[in-house]
Amino acid sequence: MSLLVICFDPSELSQVAGFGASFGTYDVLLLTGEAGNAGASKIHVANLVEVPPADNIGKSVASVAANYTHVAAVSSMRAKDLMARVAGINQSAMITDVVKVFSETEFERPMVAGSVLARVKAESTPIVMTFRPAGFDKTVPGPNGSVESISISDTGRVKRVSTSARQGGRPDLSQAKFVVSGGRPLKDAATFEQVIGGFADKFGAAVGATRAAVDSGIAPNDLQVGQTGKVVAPDLYIAAGISGSTQHMAGIKDSKLIVAINKDGDAPIFDQADLGIVGDLYEVLPELEKALS
């Protein structure tokens, strides 16, 4: 058994130790940035300036991955893009969103919008995985055994013409300690930004949104939390004007404390929130901001 964890940038290095410990020792392939503590036996540093499109580095990453029985990455859109490509190239089994490791071949993962946990068995190696760090111990990683540079080649077949990032300054949703999310009652993009964004900025929180809010253009897509969006696991999750669809709850159930604010006292979110208040979010949020400051 040998495990390689692929990290896209140094921010992921601190998230691999808990998962890696389930396998004993592990190596890391770091695509961009400088090596930091990851608790790895060996860290391969590719030192790419930015992560190229998955197609362009798929074969090169797959050739490194081919030296291992198990290859994993922290769940994210970029990980799903690249890791499934690598699995396809190496004819690997693939398990998406692993939350528990039973053995070298058996894993637990959520399905059907998180309403079901499946125990999945890989019938052959190599095995490619993405995993959710919230399911594992938050072990602070120790130093790496050795650091080696490695060359990952970029075929240049797919051209990246431009990138645009979300509004700056706010923490990354999937790693934030405090998340404030809004739903469709926020009316329009300006109101959403002012009410939810304004509250979040007071506390350095990340901003999230429901699929309904994203679909109706109130919030940008990269803020979508849920089955088909991001999975968050903050200490505190405040859901304002969110009814609590299965789809949305799938993305927040690992939060330590879920607080629901909704006008409708019968909204399903009250069944799953730790704390709830029936009220108008436009009145509750400003008051709460004052009370918590």
Binding site: S162, S164, R166, D222
Partner: peptide
């Protein structure tokens, strides 16, 4: 769509 916004390929 990307983790942090969007990109054009």
């Amino acid at each position: 769509e990307t983790d942090s916004g969007e990109e054009t390929l």
